[in-house]
Nucleic acid binder design. Structure first.
Lengths: 187, 187
DNA sequence: ATGGGCATGTAACGAGTTACATGATTTT
DNA sequence: AAAATCATGTAACTCGTTACATGCCCAT
C-alpha cells in the first residue's frame, strides 16, 4: 500500500491533522471544526470534506466504522491510521514553506480606487472594519473554548496569531480612512 | 449585449482593473502586472489570464486588436470598453465585502504542532521568516517603482498595507519562536 | 550555443463550489 | 408549525494549475 503516495492537496492534511487530536470524528464534525480554522486557513465546502475522506480511506491514511444510532441518522466515524499519522508528521516537518495565499478583495478594490471617489472607498473600508470586528468576535469565542486545555496549546498559539492579524487589519483600515479623508478635502 | 451579465470571478475584475489604468496591454503584460498584486491578491496562472481575456471579449467588456510586429511574435493588445469600465466601477463600489481568504500553511502546520517537537517548529518559523523577508524585498522593489507617480496613489496605499502586513508577520513569527523556546527547555 | 525573456495558446486534470436530495431530531 | 441542527451524499459545474507546444529575440 501507498508505495507512491500521490501529492495531496493541503485540504487532505487539514483532515488528517484534525483527526490527529485523537478523537474519532464524523465528516460532519470535521467540517464544523475545519470552519474554526477559517481565520488562518480557508475551509473547504462540506462536499469536499466527504470526498476527501473517501480518498484518504482508499489511500489507507484513515479508517472508518459505521455507527448505527438509535433514532438518529447513521454515522460514519473516522480515525487516523498509522500511515496517516506518519504522512501528517512528514508534511508538518518536511514540507517546504509555501508562500501564504491571500485573496484580499477589499485591498484589491482599493488598488483600483481611481475608478471611483474617496468617500466610496471610505464607506468600503468602514464595512471592512465592521466585518473584521465580527471575525474578531467569532475568534474570541473559539479562543475561549480552548483556554487552559493543554492539548490545544498550539491551536491557542495560532489563534493568538490570527487575533494579532485581525487587529492589525483594523488599525490599517482606520489609518487608510484617515488618509482618504485628507485626499477628499483639498480639491 | 450583456443584459444578463453572469457573475464573474474576481480574476476577471483583476484584469478589468489593470486595464482601467488606461494603457493597452497584452495578455503577457497583464500577467506580469498581476504577479505584482500577489502581496495581497493571489495571481492566477498564465493560461487563466488568456482564457479570461477571451471570455471578457465575448462579453464585450474588453476589446482587442492584433499588432503585427517586425521580427517579433504577433501581439494582441486589449483595452477596456465602456461596458467594461462600468462593470468594474460597479464591482468596486457596490459589491459586498467578502471575507478575506487566507491560506496560511505555516500557521496550519503550527496548529498541528503536537505531531512533532518544538525545535522542528522553530526551524519551520525561521524558514517562514526568511520567506517573509524575501517577500518584503520584492515588495520594496515594486514600491520604489511607484514612488511619486500620482496615477498609482491607490496602488501605493495598498503596497503600504501589504508592507505592514508582512512586518506584522515577521514580528509574530519571532514572538512565537520565543514562546516555543520556553516550552522547549523545562521538560 | 545556451538560457532567459517575449508572446500566445491548448489539453488534461484536479480542486473546490453550488445546488440538490433525504430524513430525523431538537429548538423556538 | 417552522426553523435550525445533525448527518450524508451526488451531480454538474467552474476555477485554476500543470505541462506541453511553438517560435523569435537578446544577452552572455
Amino acid at each position: 500500500m501507498n508505495e507512491k503516495l500521490p501529492v495531496l492537496p493541503t485540504t487532505s492534511y487539514v483532515i488528517l491533522g484534525l483527526l490527529s487530536f485523537g478523537a474519532e470524528l464524523s465528516g460532519y464534525e470535521i467540517r464544523k471544526w475545519a470552519q474554526n480554522l477559517r481565520f488562518f486557513y480557508w475551509s473547504p465546502a462540506q462536499s469536499q470534506v466527504y470526498s476527501e475522506l473517501q480518498r484518504l480511506e482508499e489511500l489507507g491514511l484513515v479508517r472508518s466504522r459505521a455507527v448505527q444510532q438509535v433514532e438518529k441518522p447513521d454515522k460514519r466515524l473516522y480515525q487516523l491510521t498509522e500511515h496517516g499519522g506518519a504522512e501528517l508528521a512528514r508534511w508538518v516537518c518536511d514540507a517546504k514553506v509555501e508562500p501564504t495565499i491571500v485573496k484580499h478583495s477589499v485591498a484589491l478594490r482599493l488598488y483600483f480606487g481611481h475608478v471611483t471617489k474617496p468617500p466610496v472607498l471610505i464607506e468600503l473600508l468602514e464595512k471592512f472594519i465592521a466585518e473584521t470586528q465580527t471575525m474578531l468576535g467569532q475568534l474570541a469565542i473559539v479562543q475561549e473554548a480552548m483556554e487552559n486545555e493543554p492539548q490545544f496549546a498550539y491551536s491557542a498559539l495560532v489563534a493568538e496569531w490570527s487575533h494579532h492579524y485581525y487587529m492589525a487589519e483594523l488599525a490599517m483600515a482606520q489609518r487608510l480612512i484617515e488618509r482618504l479623508r485628507q485626499i477628499e478635502v483639498p480639491p
